[in-house]
Write a protein that binds this DNA or RNA. Structure first.
Length: 597
RNA sequence: GGCCCCGUAGUGUAGCGGUCUAACAUGCCACCCUGUCACGGUGGAGAUCAGGGGUUCGAAUCCCCUCGGGGUCGCCA
C-alpha cells in the first residue's frame, strides 16, 4: 500500500507517528514560506504542512502542486500549534509535517468545483461523472446505497433466503413495457430481451423448491424516463413459498423499519405501516401512491352540488362525473397570480378548469361565514348552506382556500392528487425527515383497456385473485380484487407484489380472459404453465425499488443522484456516450439492416 | 408525440430594447506573503451572450425555427 493511514482517520492519539498518506489535493494554501495542503481521500481530509526549513525539496514540490493532483506524502503527525486547531474538521487537531512528497499524478483544472457544494448543470456532471462522484454529496449517496444493500442482504440471509442470480438475456414477452432487445448472432432473426423483472424465473425457482429467494436485480424497461424512472433500475426482487399476503407484508415492514433505524436513525418511521385499500386511497387521496405525511384529504362534493345553480357542477354530476375538492389551509389570501398558477396546473393535467373558493380573510369559525365573505367566481351560484356543506366536507374553516375540480372521475382524481402534493409542498406540510410508509391493498385484478377493447392485468397476469372472487371472473371481472399489494412512501410507489397463481387451470383461465389464444399462451408462457404441472407450491413475493428507497433515505429529488452512472432524460449515458452507432460489420454479423426513416 | 421551464467567461449568477467596449463571485495564470484552513494582497488572461433566421435605426434582451438540458402528460403489465 502507498498509504499507512487514510486522510480521514488521524487523531490526537496518532501524534508522533510517522505516517504515509495518499490522496487528492482538495485545497492548497501557499503562504510563500509555509504551504498547507488539504489532502483528501475517501475517508476524509488531513492538513499537510510543507515547511522549507524542514524539507526544502518537498516544499518545492508542493509549490508545483495544483487542485486534484494526486500526492504521496510521508511525515510526522503533530499537534497543531495551540490556537490554530480547526474544529470544523474531524482531523482538525492534528496536521502532518511533510518530510517526503511525491506527485503520483497531475490534474488539469476540473470543469467544475469538486471541493465546493455548488449546483452544477447536471449534463456537465454526468459527462464528468467520475469527477462528480468525488464530491462529498455523491460519495455520501453511494456509501448510503452500499449500506442499504448490505443491510438488506444481511437481513434476508439471516432469515434463510438464498440470493440467486437470474440471466440478463432472457425471452421477450410483448406485454407490459417495451423490451430492450439483444439480437442473436447464432440465430438469425431471433432476439433475447433484457428482463423487465425476473418474474417468471423467480416463480420457476419456487417450483424448484428454493422457498426463499432474493436478488438485487437489474431491471430494464424501454420507456420514457422521469425523475424517479430510468431505463434500467435496481430492485430487491424477492419471492417466498407457502406464504400469505400477511407474511410478505410483515417481512417487508420489519425489513424497512429496522433498516431505517439502523442506517438513518434520525429519520422517523410511522409504525405499524398504515394499510389502505385501493378504493379508499383513490377516494381519499385521488391516487394510490399517496403521501401520508400530511392529511389534506380530498372530499367528494357531488351530492352537495348536484342541485346547485352552478351549471358546471350540476351538469358534471348529471353526466355521471364527479365534483371533488381539497382544502388548502390558510390560503384564502392567495393572489390572483397564485390562483392562476394553480388553475394552469390543473388544466395542464387535463382538467377543464379549477374552481377556487376563498373563505374570508382571517381564521375563525365557519358559523360566522356570510356569502359576501366568499370569494369565488361561483359564489353567486351557490347558497351559503352549500358553501358551508362543501367546507364542512373538506374540513375547511375561515381563512382557508378550497380547490374544486369537476369532470371525469379519473381526471378529477389525478388533478386533485397533484394539487394536494403541490400544496403540501408549498405549505411545507410534509416533514422531510419522516418516511410515511403505507401498504395499499385490494387492487382490482383487471382493468379494461379501451384501446385494445379487452381486459388487461392491473399488476401482471400471474397475480392471484382473491379466493372468494374467483367465481366473479365469469360474471363480473371488474369486481374481482387481487392478492396484490403496493408499498408507497412519501408519494412514491416503492414496491409492488402479489401472491401468485399456482394453479395452471386458473392461470390458463386468466390468460384466456386477457384475450390470449392457446397458441400465444403456449409460446409466451409455455414453460411456466408446464412447470405448474409439477407441483408448484403456493408462493408470492414483492419487489421494492432500491433506487427510490435510497433516494428517499438520501433526501434527494431524483434517483439519478443515487445511481453511479445514470442516463439522462433522453436515455443517453453522457459518461460513455451511449447509445452509439455500430459498424456495418457488427450489423452484418447480427443479420441486421437499418431501415431508412 | 403534447405541454411547461432553462441555455451569458472554466463554474455559479446578474443584465431582460440603447450608456454592454457584457457585470459580479469564484476558479485559472503571474508576482508577493511562515500558521492558514472558502488564507490574504497586487496585477492579468478569459464570453462568436447555445446555433440559425426575423422584427427594429439599434437585440444577450422581442418573435420564429433548430439543437442541447430539465420537469411533466401520454407511456411505465
Amino acid at each position: 500500500m502507498l498509504k499507512s493511514h487514510s486522510c480521514g482517520e488521524l487523531r490526537k492519539g496518532d501524534v508522533g507517528k510517522r505516517v504515509t498518506l495518499a490522496g487528492w489535493v482538495d485545497r492548497r494554501r501557499d503562504h510563500g514560506g509555509l504551504i498547507f495542503i488539504d489532502l483528501r481521500d475517501r475517508a476524509g481530509v488531513s492538513q499537510v504542512v510543507f515547511n522549507p526549513e524542514v524539507a526544502s525539496s518537498c516544499h518545492e514540490t508542493a509549490s508545483q502542486v495544483r487542485s486534484e493532483y494526486v500526492l504521496n506524502v510521508s511525515g510526522e503527525v503533530a499537534l497543531r500549534p495551540s490556537g490554530t486547531e480547526n474544529l470544523q474538521l474531524a482531523t482538525g487537531e492534528i496536521e502532518v509535517i511533510a518530510g517526503d512528497c511525491t506527485i503520483l499524478s497531475t490534474s488539469e483544472t476540473p470543469p467544475f468545483y469538486i471541493n465546493q457544494e455548488v449546483e452544477v448543470e447536471e449534463s456537465l456532471r454526468l459527462r464528468y461523472r467520475y469527477l462528480d462522484l468525488r464530491r462529498p454529496r455523491m460519495l455520501r449517496n453511494l456509501t448510503l446505497r452500499h449500506r442499504v444493500v448490505e443491510y438488506i442482504r444481511n437481513f434476508l440471509n439471516a432469515k434463510g433466503f438464498l440470493e440467486i442470480e437470474t440471466p440478463i438475456m432472457i425471452k421477450s414477452t410483448p406485454e407490459g413495457a417495451r423490451d430492450y432487445l439483444v439480437p442473436s448472432r447464432v440465430h438469425p432473426g431471433k432476439f433475447y430481451a433484457l428482463p423487465q423483472s425476473p418474474q417468471q424465473l423467480k416463480q420457476l425457482l419456487m417450483v424448484a423448491g428454493v422457498e426463499k429467494y432474493y436478488q438485487i436485480a437489474k431491471c430494464f424497461r424501454d420507456e420514457d424516463t422521469r425523475a424517479d424512472r430510468q431505463p434500467e433500475h435496481t430492485q430487491l426482487d424477492l419471492e417466498m413459498s407457502f406464504v400469505t399476503e400477511e407474511d410478505i407484508l410483515g417481512l417487508i415492514e420489519e425489513l424497512f423499519t429496522s433498516l431505517v433505524t439502523a442506517i438513518k436513525p434520525d429519520m422517523k418511521v410511522i409504525t405499524p405501516f398504515p394499510r389502505v385499500t385501493y378504493d379508499d386511497a383513490i377516494a381519499r387521496f385521488g391516487t394510490d401512491h399517496l403521501d401520508l405525511r400530511f392529511s389534506m384529504e380530498t372530499g367528494d362534493l357531488s351530492d352537495i352540488v348536484a342541485d346547485s345553480e352552478f351549471a358546471v357542477f350540476r351538469d358534471t354530476v348529471v353526466a355521471g362525473g364527479k365534483v371533488k375538492g381539497i382544502c388548502a389551509p390558510g390560503c384564502s389570501s392567495y393572489s390572483r397570480h397564485q390562483l392562476d398558477e394553480l388553475n394552469k396546473m390543473a388544466q395542464g393535467l387535463g382538467a377543464r378548469g379549477l374552481l377556487t373558493v376563498a373563505l374570508g380573510d382571517t381564521p375563525g369559525s365557519l358559523d360566522d361565514l356570510t356569502l359576501d365573505m366568499v370569494k369565488s367566481v361561483a359564489a353567486r351560484f351557490l347558497t351559503l348552506e352549500q358553501v358551508k356543506g362543501i367546507a364542512g366536507r373538506l374540513g375547511a374553516g375561515m381563512g382557508d382556500l378550497l380547490l374544486i375540480v369537476a369532470g371525469d372521475p379519473k381526471v378529477v382524481n389525478k388533478v386533485l392528487s397533484e394539487l394536494r402534493a403541490e400544496m403540501g409542498n408549498r405549505l411545507e406540510l410534509a416533514d422531510p425527515n419522516t418516511l410515511a410508509f403505507a401498504f395499499i391493498q385490494d387492487y382490482p385484478l383487471l382493468k379494461w383497456d379501451e384501446e385494445l377493447g379487452r381486459w388487461d392485468s392491473e399488476h401482471h397476469p400471474f397475480t392471484a385473485p382473491k379466493e372468494e372472487h374467483i367465481p366473479l371472473l365469469d360474471t363480473a371481472p371488474e369486481r374481482v380484487r387481487s392478492q396484490c399489494y403496493d408499498i408507497v412512501c412519501n408519494g412514491y410507489e416503492l414496491a409492488s407484489g402479489s401472491i401468485r397463481i399456482h394453479d395452471s387451470e386458473l392461470q390458463h383461465k386468466i390468460f384466456s380472459l386477457l384475450g390470449y389464444s392457446d397458441e400465444e399462451i403456449q409460446q409466451r408462457f409455455g414453460t411456466m404453465l408446464e412447470a405448474f404441472h409439477y407441483g408448484p407450491p403456493p408462493h408470492g413475493g414483492i419487489a421494492p425499488g432500491i433506487d427510490r428507497l435510497v433516494m428517499l433515505l438520501a433526501g434527494e429529488e431524483t434517483i439519478r443522484e443515487v445511481i453511479a452512472f445514470p442516463k439522462n432524460q433522453s436515455a443517453v449515458d453522457l459518461t460513455l456516450d451511449a447509445p452509439s452507432p455500430v459498424t456495418e460489420e457488427q450489423l452484418a454479423e447480427l443479420h441486421l439492416q437499418l431501415r431508412d426513416e
